[in-house]
């Protein structure tokens, strides 16, 4: 197809490993890469800020919706279809589609278009997992709770949410990893974050920058996954820990 990259980069021959390693180390060691707006701490900070904001907004929208659907048992088809449609949404397209929206609202490039892409990306796994988690609770348990005189709110708070927690958190975990990964793509629409190193590295044919950016993004994504796994262990009651992970019906394109 194309021997040249879309960004005008020629397909490079594999560099000598030693030279390449030296270049990467030199790039990391360069103090200029640790300060200022394009420094590693700033880029990590931007990436985390975007990801955490997007995840918080996603949770604020998706959790009430998922809980309402799951508790009442209504809208099951909706909840499941959200997952299917969500999975089909390409993240690059989401970013791209967010661009005209942000422009239309006069919010410009960078942060907001990225946010418009990341928040919708986080919704489906949380809504679907919350719905499925609540619906798959043993009906006997619900009946017993009602039989003891729990009101709907008590039932949700004391029984349904704790029992469904592992599956809900698994959904949040999926959302978080998808958001962290896609925040990288935000660099294409001029947002900050670690994606900058990759996109700029590609554009400038700077393979050391490209490589360091890739390592940092990979570490951040794996770190997010592990941190949420740890969180899951901390908040899930011992008695239902064996209930394990959600059946992974959801996965986001990144």
């Amino acid at each position: 197809m194309h021997s040249t990259g879309f960004l005008g980069l020629n397909g490079p021959r594999a560099p000598d490993p030693m030279t390449f390693a030296a270049a990467v180390l030199a790039w990391i060691a360069d103090p200029a890469h640790w300060v200022g707006f394009d420094g590693i701490p700033t880029r990590v900070g931007e990436h985390l800020t975007m990801s955490v904001t997007a995840l918080a907004l996603s949770l604020a929208i998706a959790l009430p919706v998922g809980l309402a659907l799951g508790h009442t048992g209504k809208g099951g088809a909706v909840a499941i279809n959200i997952a299917n449609v969500g999975r089909a949404l390409p993240s690059l397209a989401l970013i791209a589609l967010a661009l005209p929206v942000a422009f239309g609202l006069g919010l410009g490039l960078g942060f907001w278009p990225t946010m418009f892409a990341l928040v919708p990306l986080g919704l489906p796994p949380i809504i679907t997992n919350t719905y499925v988690a609540l619906r798959s609770i043993d009906p006997d348990l619900i009946e017993a709770a009602r039989g003891m005189g729990m009101r709907e709110w008590d039932l949700l708070r004391r029984v349904e949410i704790p029992v469904a927690a592992p599956v809900i958190i698994a959904g949040v975990r999926n959302a978080a990893v998808a958001i962290v990964a896609t925040a990288t793509l935000g660099a294409i629409v001029a947002s900050g974050g670690l994606g900058r190193y990759i996109v700029d590295g590609l554009a400038r044919q700077d393979q050391a920058r490209l490589f360091v950016g890739a390592v940092l993004v990979a570490l951040l994504a794996i770190g997010a996954e592990l941190a949420l796994a740890l969180f899951e262990r901390l908040v899930v009651p011992v008695g239902i820990r064996h209930a394990a992970r959600a059946p992974d019906t959801w996965s986001a394109p990144r």
Binding site: T184, L185, I198, A214, A218, I222, E225
Partner: peptide, 12 residues
């Protein structure tokens, strides 16, 4: 878990 863009960057 590794974001796609990062994985491509590793491979380039």
């Amino acid at each position: 878990t590794i974001p796609s863009l990062a994985l491509f960057a590793f491979l380039i």
